[in-house]
Amino acid sequence: MTEAILFTDNLSRHYGGIAANSQVSITLRRGQLHAVLGPNGAGKTTLINLLSGDVAASHGSIRFGDQEISGFSAHRRSRIGIGRSYQKTNIFPSFTVFENTRLAAQSRQPRPFKIFSSALSYKEIVDTALSALERTGLSDRRDDVASTLSHGEQRQLEIAMVLATRPDVLLLDEPLAGMGSEESAQMVQLLKQLSPHHAILIVEHDMDAVFAIADVITVMVNGQVLEHGPPRQIRSSVAVQQAYLGHEDDP
């Protein structure tokens, strides 16, 4: 049995009368890649925002190990090991690729307010940043300014920054969106490599990729969990086909 790291219990978020998430209960386990599918507006990004602390829950609980964390701020959740990437690329465009990841790695430095040492003198942080770049295939571009990267490369950088914080849980919001087929294949490969040591939650529209790599799939519609199970079960689920996959098959 794999180790369960992050649980939600009846997690809900309302915006006025609209329930963006309603009574969502999921469990993320180390070694398991958990995909969330659903049509636009199903509440997938809201779920990630709730887990990462970008948005506060209206009801329900989030537990990390034995700890109730629904009251934690976003930076505190990041510090305990929940890392996230964004659907809309969210980097430091004017910094170099290296500085983007170095800054991410630096967030784990034990004494952050040492103000008279050089930022580049911390070997461990520099190494963490470099290895995150290597894993995401960005080593060649490390000295380039991030805004000059292609869209696909910026998506890779987005992931590299999350990895540099060395999280246990990865919350990835459409990591493959806007990537070319080669970059996409590389990213899928990376996700497979990461999967055994991390608990990964991924929101993704690329069905082929999702069914190829996911261990568990949750299908959401209108903020609620419609179906939950291994890919085989989801593929054959009548409810899912009606609600979601059916549309995909239409020409």
């Binding site: 990462s52 701020s73 976003a74 930076h75 505190r76 996230r84 969210n90 952050p112 920054m161």
Partner: peptide
């Protein structure tokens, strides 16, 4: 440059 991302990186 990007306060929101700094927050989500754990700062």
């Amino acid at each position: 440059t990007n306060e929101h991302r700094m927050q989500s990186l754990g700062y």
